[in-house]
Design a protein around this nucleic acid. Structure first.
Lengths: 253, 253
DNA sequence: CGATAACTTGATGTGACTCAACTTAAGTGG
DNA sequence: CCACTTAAGTTGAGTCACATCAAGTTATCG
């Protein structure tokens, strides 16, 4: 694991714990934040562990503080599909439902700021302003998921791969700050090839070929299977087939 | 157009207009409902018309009362992708955002129960219980969209086609009630082949071939391009590759 | 250091897209 | 109401991107 992303909320009220969202800190009262902090707690999960299994009762919700959580759906015939990725500052868990339709797994070592689901629900009932902020965040998430679905749908594998690598590059941004000014930025790839492949609706083989092609074209340099150097952003964007602004919108999968 | 679905809320408070959701009627107070009814109004749109263009300011939101609305995303290079379908009782529009990231188009002749966006937002600010209900509904929708994305992803075209036809069959259920007891149910297909094709991430040609195959297998009978008879539900489910319960969950795309 | 898993590369087959012709349906104006 | 026009849908032939199968290579871990 590399230097952890600093996800602490800048408003200072909720210091290191930032349940829900940045924007939330400005919305909730100081009193509310203190109350939230009292009932939340940190938990860590090793890579590969299941935070919340599909179909099981939901008792924990919260924020990802460090690491990446993958959201996957297991079908009857055994094969699972990754339907989403949660990065630091993203909310995880399912409010207002007794069981989760997806499973949450730690794609890397993960630190969560967790809170009992029912406790948070009670809190929200008393603080409609905070629920309003969460509601807005979910609407944004819904848009992002739909936009992502549109990309997965009508594009070639190469375009999907390029798009995802771009998203990873944005998510890695403040993660390797100690690079020289004109050194190319490092992209952290938080998932294994298999998970990426089925998130993109392809196979590890095809994915690998596309990554190698990007490398041969001089767009990225492969440091190791989980770290690339980004040599040519605009070419990467061209390969993705999206406009830069669309890509930036999506970066919150 | 066939006999319209009865979407009036059974609680009786909000008579024919059912802004937001069934469940909402039980959540809001009578006074609240009266207020909502006062500021909402019906609008109709002919097939093919654009209710809300992508990127334009959002000033109307509400419920679909009759017909089907398609939610599509237009990419820079001109081709549009259908990312969702809204059926009677579904909420349309984007709250809390100045512009819409998708366009809403009438896939059939459509009747909406519309309300000024800002007016509804003000209303929700005064009625947190109602916003809570909307929030819950959006969480369900998000789950459904993710589940749908997983299906589009890892399945063959035939499986996707079968899945969608099953969804259509469920949505058509109370729509042709005058059929004899052991007459096969009629499926209403509310979209053209092109729209269906790109909702499923395929082409009209491939879609057509798959439909013809289902017909030749005796699973459906094609009445005309917008109406099928469902002859063998369990075979259709088998072709979809999903369990019946999963399919039923998805029926709210 | 050996074993197991993750990743890459190669060879081959096929599902689905593309291009193109044809058929049927839906409008439109005389 | 019917010829004409245009769009929507179906069918066919050829091609290609991608999945599959299989082998090799590099990481990871006890």
């Amino acid at each position: 694991m590399n230097s952890p992303v600093d996800v602490s909320c800048l408003c200072g009220k909720c210091d290191s714990c930032m349940i829900l969202n940045h924007s939330l800190c400005t919305a909730g009262s100081a009193e509310a934040m203190v109350q939230l902090n009292r009932i939340s707690h940190r938990r860590t999960y090793p890579r590969g562990s299941v935070i919340q299994a599909q179909g099981e009762p939901v008792d924990l919700v919260g924020n990802v503080v460090e690491g990446v959580v993958k959201l996957s759906s297991m079908s009857v015939d055994g094969d699972s599909h990754v339907v989403g990725l949660l990065f630091p500052s993203d909310f995880f868990g399912r409010l207002f439902s007794d069981e989760s339709r997806f499973s949450f797994e730690a794609a890397t070592d993960v630190t969560l700021c967790a809170i009992n689901r029912l406790a948070l629900e009670r809190f929200l009932a008393d603080h409609p302003v905070v629920e309003h902020e969460m509601h807005k965040a979910k609407l944004d998430e819904l848009d992002a998921v739909r936009e992502w679905a549109a990309i997965i749908n009508g594009h070639t594998t190469m375009q999907r791969v390029s798009t995802l690598i771009y998203v990873f590059s944005r998510r890695s941004e403040n993660q390797f700050p100690k690079r020289g000014a004109n050194e190319p930025p490092v992209i952290h790839v938080p998932l294994g090839r298999r998970d990426i492949a089925d998130f993109l609706g392809t196979t590890p083989e095809t994915l690998s070929r596309n990554i190698q092609t990007l490398s041969r074209s001089g767009i990225i340099r492969i440091i190791d299977s989980k770290h690339f150097e980004l040599l040519d952003v605009s070419e990467l964007i061209r390969c993705s087939g999206e406009s830069r602004e669309d890509l930036n919108r999506i970066s919150a999968i």
